[in-house]
Amino acid sequence: MNINKSLIKKAAITVASTALLLSVAGASFADYPDRPIGVMVAYNPGGATDFQARIATLASAKEKDGKALSVGQPIYVTNKPGAGGRKGWNWFADKAPSDGYMLAAYNVPHFIAQSIVFDTKYNINNLEPVGNWGADPAVLIVGKDSEFNTATELVAYAKKNPGKVTVSGAGKFVGHHIAHLQLAKAAGVKLTYVPGKGGVGAMKLVKGGQVKAGFNNLSDAARAQGDIKILAVADLERHAFLPDVPTLMELGILVDNSSVNFRGLMVPKGTPANVISHLEKTVPVMFNDKKTLGKMKQTNSPVRIMTRNEVIAMWKERQSALTELLKDLK
């Protein structure tokens, strides 16, 4: 009898403790998030990715009648700049906690191109997107006093003078570099790519007339129209900010949207499924906040909100397009 009693006792304890454990675990599942969430930005504070990330996450803790409208906790930004973003993203894929309390901002095509060209710790397979907030196409620009007025003229000149046309961009293996490679390939011309110090440095080279042309962010180019001429957009459709500027496609130069700079949020692989599904549902809602959209408009940041599944498809598509494009460069 004694044995039985102790058995029952043991069983009871086991059941109770399991129940307790389950309830604790269940509570922690149900309660995510219960403290502020971080977002790692792999670029300097004050840069476009940084301030857009700050605006995009403004509404994370918004409540109505005591109920969280979106993510449900404040979001703070941590910058880990260096090596064109590689420093931060390497840290994120390798060392960041995968409990949903540390997100990161991604820049496509930058990180995908880097994972193809370099030996990085991240690739599209060990990162999980949760939502996209913006898409900034690359535009082809020339200085105010340039002899070129259309992209066709520029291409014709480049055909006659191979290598003489200098094109600036924000650095190597970023959207602008990709756009340059695509343009050269599609138009069958030889251009000289001049990497600038970030988008600002690349823009300066165009404004100062040191280079003949340049690729730059649509948002930055749109507000610098007093100093430059915008010849074409490297996207599938014209952009609402610049309704009069044609796409390269329209001009018969077959450049698709591979160079468009997509920005959004992601978590490392291994993050619990319930956390991902919570973020997947709430992050696009957070981006869609009225005040956030207003601030985005005020800062000239092109918005394109996409859900997790749309981003996954976009990543995959970019991966294969970029692998093809960068094949010869490696």
Binding site: N44, G46, R223, A224, Q298, T299, N300
Partner: peptide, 16 residues
């Protein structure tokens, strides 16, 4: 350069 970010956040774009 950091100050530039501070301007942009408030929708103040450098230029004329």
């Amino acid at each position: 350069a950091v100050l530039l970010g501070g301007l942009l956040i408030h929708g103040l774009f450098p230029g004329p």
